[in-house]
Simulated assay, not measured.
Amino acid sequence: MKKGDSGRISKNMDECMKCPESHYANSEKNHCLQKSVSFLAYEDSLGIALTTTALCLSVLTAVVLVVFVKHRHTPIVKANNWTLSYTLLLTLIMCFLSSLLFIGQPNTATCILQQTAFGIFFTVALSTVLAKAITVVIAFKVTVPNRKVRRLMISRAPNFIIPICTLIQLLFCGIWLITSPPFIDQNAHAEHGHIIILCNKGSAVAFHCVLGYLCFLALVSYTLAFFSRNLPDTFNEAKFLSFSMQVFFCVWITFLPVYHSTKGKVMVAMEVFSMLASSTALLSLIFGPKCYIILLRPDKNVCLDIRYKSNSKRNSGLNFI
């Protein structure tokens, strides 16, 4: 018997027997032992860390939402389109909580929900950011003689962007589930003595299409926000939108090579970490500066400050950002 062949045991001096895939040979090479089942469990140190992080971030997002609702009549909340802000915060809570679907023993339902929830919730979040970026561009860059027409354009933009972008992602997910849906898979060779249970993506092409579409939305949002970065400083959301999209884009571009180079529980943990990191970027970079002004610098959260900062700029559309 060859040295290091952990799948075979010696029956006698001249004959070896191969252990079944669900077993492995002991150190003496004379018995087959049952492999233990392994997955990213809530009880593991890695599972505990990711679960705790996801729950804390979802609670933090809920706190930010409460702050925005409580201060909804202040200038900074009104100036940053409170409807889109509420939508984004609620979606971020779902993004954080959906990462918990990747932790625990997989089953058919969770395997399907993992990818569909990931694709849909992140699409809603990014399309909301895109709606914010387009609103900024319209409010400050487009010249419309009739103020009513301008208000109509700004108010309708978010109403169409979010459902249209989400429907496109739903189409991708629908094709994915019909052609080659995710399923439970076992890997008996990734770790010695363990059978790794995880969710197979099914169609790799569909998975990369969903992820590519998210990166496309992030890139478009970043481009629009980048060209609007030099607008009035006090409530210039474009800068924070562009920063958040940069981080989001970098996280998922980095995710692909690292994801394909890992195996087992680490691969699942890497996907959860990428979800948490990208969602945290949206939360901290978009809402962090606003919460700072609302809670710590209320003296800046006044209409006079807005007018002063926007005197040198085109300020007719400021209340719609």
Rank of each mutant, 00 (worst) to 15 (best):
G47L: 02
K201N: 11
C209M: 15
M17C: 12
E28Y: 15
K35I: 09
S10Y: 09
V266Q: 02
D14I: 13
F207P: 00
G288R: 07
I178R: 03
I168F: 05
C19E: 14
C209K: 10
T234A: 11
F122V: 15
V272Q: 00
W82R: 05
H189Y: 09
G193Q: 06
V124L: 13
M13K: 10
V59H: 04
N30R: 06
F249L: 07
G47T: 02
K263I: 01
I306W: 06
V66S: 02
K29C: 15
F255D: 04
V210T: 03
S36E: 12
S99Q: 01
V59E: 13
I134E: 05
H73C: 13
L304I: 09
D14K: 12
N146G: 08
L97A: 04
T223M: 13
L89C: 14
C303W: 10
S203Y: 05
S38M: 07
K78C: 08
P298M: 10
V59I: 07
A157K: 10
T52E: 02
L100N: 01
A54K: 03
L241G: 08
F121W: 03
P232M: 15
V77G: 09
D299Q: 11
S6H: 15
R8D: 01
M267F: 06
L283H: 03
N12D: 11
F207I: 01
L55G: 05
N319D: 08
I195S: 03
Q186K: 05
A79C: 12
I161M: 04
Y308R: 12
L90D: 13
F160H: 07
F227H: 07
S274R: 00
Q34Y: 11
L198W: 00
R72S: 10
C56T: 15
C291H: 04
L46I: 12
V64T: 15
W82Q: 07
C95W: 00
T91A: 08
V69N: 08
A139C: 09
K263P: 00
D299H: 13
L130Q: 05
F243M: 05
N230G: 07
W252A: 03
F183I: 05
S279Y: 02
T166V: 09
G104N: 05
L55C: 08
N315K: 07
M17W: 14
P106W: 03
I168E: 04
M13R: 09
Y213F: 10
R151N: 04
Y86L: 03
V124E: 04
K313W: 07
S10N: 14
A190F: 02
S155C: 11
I197Q: 00
K309R: 07
